[in-house]
Amino acid sequence: MDNADYIAGALRLANARTDDLETLRAELHGEPWWSSRLTEQDLKTLRAVAASLRQSIEAAVSGEHEALTAEVNRLLATYPPRPRLSRGEPEQHRDWHVHIADVETPPAAGIAAAAAWGLAQGIVRHGTERWGKCDAPACGTYFLDTSTNRARQFCSARCANRVHVAAFRQRRRS
């Protein structure tokens, strides 16, 4: 896994619905090693971590650098990354890679460490100007704008299309 994957993981958890265990498992489907082992206690922990990630990203979006620094450092201190060098089984043809937590780490601690690390690396790599919150009404999904012109307003093409179609229909009614 590279830093971009950890950044995506941080955003996935920040935007995840944590209503119940099955919903969270579905939200984290891209991480089967962790999601398949989640427990009710992990759910409680990850609700708090997701809220903290949202608070951190909101601070980045708002330019509140002191709050951002304090919250990300709190996450890193609470869920410190413990990198481990690993290599997949030969039959999997996997390259060398780094896991952010030991394989024996409980799922919530591993996910939280990866998310905290991903958020920190995203801020180091992209600064705070590229973090955003979807402009679509009732969406509120956070994203990282990696476009060349830094003009992204929506979390996805789906939200952008919805807003643009609604605006088009409103203009036609007028």
Rank of each mutant, 00 (worst) to 15 (best):
L28H: 03
R47Q: 09
D20Q: 08
A14W: 01
E27N: 03
T23W: 06
W33A: 14
H29L: 12
R37I: 05
V49K: 05
A8V: 11
E22S: 13
L43Y: 00
A26P: 03
G9T: 08
L28Q: 00
R47C: 01
G9E: 08
V49F: 05
R25V: 09
A14D: 06
A14G: 07
L21R: 08
G30C: 07
G30H: 11
R37W: 03
L38M: 00
N15T: 11
G30D: 15
A8C: 05
R37T: 12
Y6N: 13
W33I: 07
R25E: 02
L46D: 02
D20C: 10
T23N: 05
D42Y: 06
L13I: 03
T18W: 13
K44L: 10
T18I: 12
T45G: 03
G30R: 11
R17S: 15
Y6L: 14
E31P: 01
L38V: 08
A16V: 09
I7E: 09
S36D: 15
L46Y: 03
I7T: 13
L24Q: 02
V49I: 05
R47M: 01
A48S: 11
L38I: 04
S36N: 12
E27I: 04
E22I: 12
S36L: 13
V49G: 04
H29C: 12
E40Q: 12
Q41I: 10
R25S: 07
I7K: 01
N15A: 11
W33N: 10
Q41M: 08
R47A: 00
R25W: 03
Y6M: 13
L11K: 08
R12V: 13
L13F: 04
L43P: 02
L43Q: 00
L13G: 03
A26V: 06
